[in-house]
Simulated assay, not measured.
Amino acid sequence: MKKILIVLTNTNQYGNYKEKTGLWLGEATEFINFLKNTDIKFEFTFISPKGGKVPVDPRSLKFASEEDIKLYKDKWFVDKALTNSLKPSDIKDEEYDCIYFTGGHGVMWDFTNNKEIHDIALKIYEKNKIVSSVCHGIAGLLYLKDKNNKFIIESRNITGFTTTEEILSGKYRKVPFLNKKIAIKNNANFKSKRFYKPYALKDGNLITGQNPFSVIKVAKLVYENI
């Protein structure tokens, strides 16, 4: 049995803008559905910065597959992920083989400086277990520092939602920062492919994916390295 800790957002709008955001549904459901269909038995635990309710970005439902919607309506997922996600204080980091930061624009407000979640991720990282993200989920790694006060992304190859993709999404002026800009500022080697194309990469025990179309590639890398 391999245990994965999936991190979700509690943020439901773009800062002071009233436009709704939240979890990009497929970044949780595609990841789970892929791993559930492998030869490894996985157990998934869901946390969010505040615990409790996790909003779903309404736009993500338009891109959801039949399988995504089936899981979205599943009682287990509704209860454990969307309604009663755990708080970081509920978690024992030593139980987990991987932490996975999902995206959706909401994470840019509540993943970046959450000390409790950073502490959990760092302990998993220091045990050489997998720390992973997709799309805006990279926000959970951008400011994560080790015990020597060094960014764990420094000199590492990582990816996340790009500036070009932010412009194309129409959210460029609504987000609090740009992933690529912060990654470079914190001395990461930020890599990317063509906008909205699947792309993921592994550097040591860090696994990152560029955009919502990269979930399966991230899941495959997790499966191959867990």
Score class of each variant (00 low, 15 high):
F190I: 12
L5G: 10
I40S: 14
Y100D: 08
I207V: 13
D39C: 01
K41T: 14
S65M: 07
I167G: 00
G104R: 04
D110V: 03
I124P: 06
K3W: 01
L5Q: 08
V56D: 11
R194Y: 03
F77R: 10
A219F: 01
T102H: 07
D203C: 11
S89F: 02
G140I: 10
G204W: 07
L122C: 11
D68Y: 07
N179S: 11
K197G: 00
F34Q: 12
F111I: 05
I130P: 05
N225Y: 05
I184P: 02
K62L: 13
D39F: 09
N205K: 01
N157C: 07
V78C: 00
P55G: 09
K18C: 04
P49W: 06
N157H: 14
N225D: 05
N148W: 09
W76Y: 07
V175C: 04
T163V: 13
C135E: 05
T38H: 02
Y100H: 12
I117N: 02
G204D: 13
L168M: 15
Y223I: 03
K3I: 05
N114K: 05
I124V: 05
E166K: 13
K20H: 04
N157W: 00
F34T: 09
N113M: 07
T164S: 10
S155W: 05
G106M: 11
N128C: 00
D119Q: 10
Y196V: 00
N149M: 05
E154T: 14
T45M: 01
S85R: 12
K171S: 15
G15T: 08
K185E: 15
E66M: 02
K181H: 04
L168I: 08
G137D: 12
R194S: 15
E30L: 11
V215S: 12
T45C: 02
S65K: 09
K147P: 01
V78W: 00
I207P: 00
T83Y: 02
K2R: 13
D74K: 11
E66I: 13
K127M: 12
M108L: 15
K92P: 00
F213E: 13
I40L: 14
K147I: 12
T21K: 02
N179C: 14
K150N: 14
K185M: 14
V134G: 07
Q210E: 15
V222L: 02
D97L: 08
G52A: 06
L122W: 03
Y196R: 11
G137K: 14
K202M: 13
K92Y: 12
D93E: 15
W76I: 11
V175H: 07
L141G: 11
P198T: 05
Q210Y: 02
H118Y: 03
G51T: 09
G15W: 01
D110E: 10
W76S: 04
